[in-house]
């Protein structure tokens, strides 16, 4: 099988370089297009004015933050099940990008919240679970950082990621329940009636750009990890 051919760090190294190059190029082109649509083509929102334009960064970042955690957990599960070297490296390479996107989602969310809700932070269910997701990412990175033996680091962090991914839905639903229990539906992110087609296009293009960026950066990082370990 061709798949297992690339499971070896040595053969994967040049492939990762090629993927990184093309993904970076695609990410740059799509980001320029997406930002152009977002800032110049998409109409001003009737209720939120210009402030809504941050969704072109915020929503794709939030999607990626959750998606990358799942991908990381899948690589971790592969690392535990098949004991392949590359899986652990991929999980390690994805974690900083995931944490970055989580942080961007939180940061842009609070910047958007100030003009729209009148406050930088509310204990909304989504915000709270996003914050906990950031803690999970940081825990994963911290655990890796404190183990010197790379193979042990890979597998220990893999156990943590798998335990974390089982917990993520539980955390999300319990936070949601807690939130409705405390303050009722004073703020809802889900209203967004019918979104203009251009807004949706801009957001999807930006999501693709973020996707390719994540691939490019993690490929570069996995190449660094392969080099570091002298494979």
């Amino acid at each position: 099988m061709k798949w297992f051919w690339y499971a070896s760090p040595q053969t994967f190294y040049p492939l990762a370089g090629r993927i990184a190059r093309w993904s970076a190029l695609g990410a740059a082109v799509l980001a320029v297009c997406g930002l152009y649509i977002g800032f110049f083509v998409a109409p001003t929102d009737a209720q939120q004015g210009e402030a809504y334009r941050i969704i072109f960064i915020h929503v794709p970042a939030a999607w990626m933050s959750m998606f990358i955690y799942v991908v990381m957990a899948v690589w971790s599960a592969l690392c535990l099940a098949l004991n392949t070297r590359l899986s652990g490296m991929m999980a390690a390479a994805l974690a900083p990008t995931g944490a970055l996107f989580t942080f961007i989602a939180l940061w842009t969310g609070s910047l958007w919240g100030k003009p729209t809700w009148g406050t930088y932070w509310v204990w909304d269910a989504r915000l709270t679970s996003e914050l906990i997701l950031l803690f999970l990412y940081l825990g994963f990175i911290a655990l890796r950082a404190s183990i010197d033996d790379p193979r042990r680091a890979d597998r220990a962090a893999a156990v943590l990621a798998v335990v974390g991914v089982v917990n993520v839905p539980i955390i999300y639903y319990s936070v949601q329940w807690w939130n409705t229990l405390h303050q009722g539906a004073s703020v809802s992110l889900t209203r967004a009636p019918s979104m203009a087609a251009t807004m949706l296009t801009g957001m999807l293009v930006m999501a693709l750009a973020f996707w390719l960026y994540a691939i490019a950066v993690s490929m570069v990082r996995v190449r660094c990890i392969i080099r570091e370990r002298g494979e």
């Binding site: 906990i132 803690f135 911290a142 404190s146 183990i147 943590l160 319990s174 936070v175």
Partner: peptide, 26 residues
């Protein structure tokens, strides 16, 4: 997971506390 690691105690709290959130809420 943190057995025998340096800074085990602080690291342990960073790993475990986010997982405790649902129990605390309920």
């Amino acid at each position: 997971l943190t057995l025998g690691l340096r800074g085990g105690g602080v690291l342990l709290s960073l790993l475990v506390l986010p997982l405790y959130v649902p129990v605390l809420i309920m």
